[in-house]
């Protein structure tokens, strides 16, 4: 396997997780964040996880040192100039992402692969108007990135077939399971999973069944690992609602994706799930 120099933009949970996946597979990583505190936290995370790998006997001290040596933490975009591949993992704001890809288009080699880890923004929209849009693709990891095996490789309107194949191969080299999807709202997972939450909310709203009943039925009758309400509490009800709203808007208000008022009221009330101590269930704070 040929090792590459991979730029990762955004050192939050997702970016740090992606950086870990890359250094574990022998790639050089340039992890970029404008905020030094976020970079410090990411470094602590990488040290802590690789340290645990040593304790578990998965890797040696030397391998850990080599892995950490492969991660370079930087705060200037210009330092991504030598990257073969750049993965952007900043918050889901179009203006932010467009600005980053515009700069990358200027800084990076024309043949560098530019990937966005967006879960909800159109790849075509991010690439629109930039030089070399053929090398801009979606590369969507699932949280937590080091654990979840899936990567959605998303083909924008102007992504080239060669680059789609290159991104697919890169995902495989990272030990991930890639799937290919065209640039459609929610891609595969966030689209097809919508009814799991949305229809459960509708069933609740129509008082066909209550929260605990629906969760029990989906686990005991359906074989799902977690019920739709337990899952919303874990994901964050605000995050789940935002995803539904985004898919609904991007499908031009197709009725199949219509959001739930119950869920909206939970968000308005600040009952967001485990992270606030209460959601569909109560948690000890």
């Amino acid at each position: 396997m040929n090792t590459k120099t991979v730029g990762v933009i955004g050192a939050g949970t997702m970016g740090a997780g992606i950086a870990l996946v890359c250094i574990r597979k022998g790639h050089q990583v340039v992890l970029l964040d404008a905020n030094q505190a976020v970079l410090d936290k990411a470094l602590t995370y990488l040290q802590s996880i690789t340290g645990k790998d040593v304790e578990k006997g998965k890797i040696s001290e030397q391998e850990k040192a080599d892995m950490l040596d492969r991660a370079k933490l930087v705060s200037e975009m210009e330092q991504l100039a030598a990257c073969d591949i750049v993965i952007e993992a900043v918050p889901e704001r179009l203006d932010l992402k467009k600005g980053i890809f515009s700069e990358l288009s200027r800084i990076c080699r024309p043949d560098a692969l530019l990937l966005t880890n967006t879960s909800s923004i159109s790849i075509t929209q991010i690439a629109g108007g930039l030089p070399h849009p053929e090398r801009i693709l979606g590369f969507h990891f699932f949280n937590p990135a080091p654990v979840m095996p899936l990567v959605e490789v998303i083909r924008g309107k102007k992504s080239s077939e060669d680059n789609v194949q290159a991104a697919y191969r890169f995902a495989t080299e990272l030990g991930k399971v890639p799937v290919l999807v065209t640039d459609t709202p929610g891609f595969i997972v966030n689209r097809i999973a919508r009814p799991y939450y949305n229809e459960a909310l509708r069933i609740l709203g129509d008082h066909v069944a209550e929260v605990e009943q629906i969760d029990r039925i989906m686990k005991r009758a359906g074989g799902f690992k977690m019920g739709p309400f337990e899952l919303q509490d874990m994901i964050g009800i605000d995050i789940n609602f935002a995803t539904t709203e985004s898919v609904y808007t991007d499908f031009f208000h197709e009725g199949r994706f219509k959001p739930s008022r119950i869920q909206q009221r939970m968000v308005q009330a600040g009952s967001l799930g485990r992270k606030t101590g209460e959601g569909f269930y109560d948690y000890d704070k």
Binding site: F142, M148, P149, L150, E152, V177, V179, L180, V181, T182, T184, F187, I188, V189, R191, I192, A193, Y196, G222, G223, F224, K225, M226, R256
Partner: peptide, 24 residues
């Protein structure tokens, strides 16, 4: 719908839902 629109293959749709969200 996703398959009909050829947004992804049947195989990739099934893999995505098992590996991305733990569907049985």
């Amino acid at each position: 719908f996703t398959l009909m629109e050829k947004a992804a293959t049947a195989r990739d749709i099934d893999i995505a839902m098992k590996k991305g969200t733990n569907y049985p």
